[in-house]
Amino acid sequence: MKIRWCGHSCFLLTADSGLKLLTDPFDETVGYPLPTVAPDVVTVSHEHFDHNAVKVLPGTPDVVRGPGEHTVRGISIVGLATHHDDAGGARRGENTVFTMALDGLRVTHLGDLGHPLSAAQIMALRPVHVLMIPVGGYYTIDARQAKEVVDALNPNLVLPMHYKTDVMDFPIAGVEPFLNLVGGGERLRSTTLEVTPESLPERRRVVVLDYM
């Protein structure tokens, strides 16, 4: 499977079969270049403009929203109900964490998770091979909370997302505070990473991808 970071919380997963799954598409106001690929499947963690902009995508993908078990184009996708804040959703609403089973891997995208995970939620999500986690704070968990989530889920591969870069003006932190807490990360200087069950690191690997 190939994983490409398109910016913000948007990743393109390309299976060995060629099937393309896109997470949390953003609109043109966010600052990153819009994805130009036509995905087969799109997951939307919640209904904010920087995560639900399916309308900007080419093609007519199948769109997955909300908690529960979904099977789309042969892919198993499980949504776990969480909140966008630490007040039970009172401030920013609900959020769905999606786990996709693809090419023998369990890929978990936390969306705009806004609170620490409960013991029951941790048990429901594990095992996690690839974790896409927000680290910028303000709208989501911050660097410290993100580290706690990583420690609890113990994924093989960690891909930070939803952090400040030079193309956006959101009031969130960059990736560095998170990297400092987890002992550093590997900057690939690439938008894309290829992952297989055989190539999964035994020890946790934190990778920072470029968006272009």
Results as ranks from 00 to 15, higher is better:
Met1Gln: 05
Lys2Tyr: 13
Arg4His: 05
Arg4Tyr: 02
Trp5Lys: 03
Gly7Leu: 04
Cys10Pro: 00
Leu12Asn: 01
Thr14Phe: 00
Ala15Leu: 15
Lys20Asp: 07
Lys20Gly: 04
Leu22Ile: 13
Pro25Leu: 05
Phe26Arg: 01
Asp27Glu: 13
Asp27Pro: 07
Asp27Asn: 14
Val30Leu: 15
Gly31Thr: 11
Tyr32Met: 11
Pro33Gln: 08
Pro35Phe: 00
Thr36Ile: 09
Val37Ser: 07
His46Gln: 10
His48Ile: 11
Phe49Ala: 12
Asp50Lys: 01
Asn52Met: 10
Asn52Lys: 07
Asn52Pro: 01
Ala53Phe: 09
Ala53Lys: 02
Lys55Leu: 13
Pro61Ala: 09
Pro61Asn: 08
Val64Arg: 00
Arg65Phe: 06
Gly66His: 14
Pro67Asn: 12
Gly68Ile: 13
Gly68Tyr: 12
Gly68Pro: 08
Glu69Pro: 04
Glu69Cys: 14
Thr71Glu: 14
Arg73Ile: 04
Gly74Pro: 02
Ile77Glu: 05
Ile77Lys: 04
Thr82Ser: 10
His84Phe: 10
His84Gly: 09
Asp85Asn: 04
Ala87Trp: 14
Arg91Ser: 09
Thr96Leu: 08
Val97Arg: 00
Phe98Ser: 02
Ala101Val: 09
Asp103Glu: 07
Gly104Ile: 03
Arg106Gly: 03
Val107Pro: 03
Thr108Ile: 08
Leu110Lys: 00
Leu113Phe: 10
Ala120Gly: 08
Ala120Ile: 10
Gln121Met: 12
Met123His: 14
Met123Lys: 15
Met123Val: 15
Pro127Thr: 11
Val128Ile: 09
His129Tyr: 14
Val130Ser: 02
Ile133Thr: 03
Gly137Ala: 06
Tyr138Pro: 08
Tyr139Asn: 09
Ile141Val: 15
Ile141Asn: 00
Arg144Val: 11
Gln145Ile: 11
Ala146Gln: 05
Lys147His: 06
Lys147Met: 08
Glu148Asn: 12
Val149Lys: 01
Asp151Ala: 13
Ala152Leu: 05
Asn154Glu: 13
Asn154Arg: 12
Pro155Asp: 05
Pro155Gln: 10
Leu157Met: 12
Val158Glu: 03
Val158Met: 07
His162Met: 05
Tyr163Asn: 01
Tyr163Ala: 01
Asp166Val: 13
Asp166Gln: 11
Asp166Gly: 12
Phe170Thr: 11
Ile172Met: 15
Ala173Lys: 09
Val175Asp: 03
Val175Asn: 02
Pro177Val: 03
Pro177Ala: 09
Phe178Ile: 06
Gly183Leu: 03
Gly184Arg: 06
Gly184Trp: 09
Glu186Pro: 06
Glu186Asn: 13
Arg189His: 14
Val195Cys: 02
Thr196Gln: 11
Thr196Ser: 15
Pro197Gly: 11
Glu198Leu: 15
Arg204Gln: 12
Arg205Gly: 04
Arg205Lys: 15
Val206Asp: 02
Val207Leu: 13
Val207Trp: 07
Tyr211Asn: 12
Met212Tyr: 12
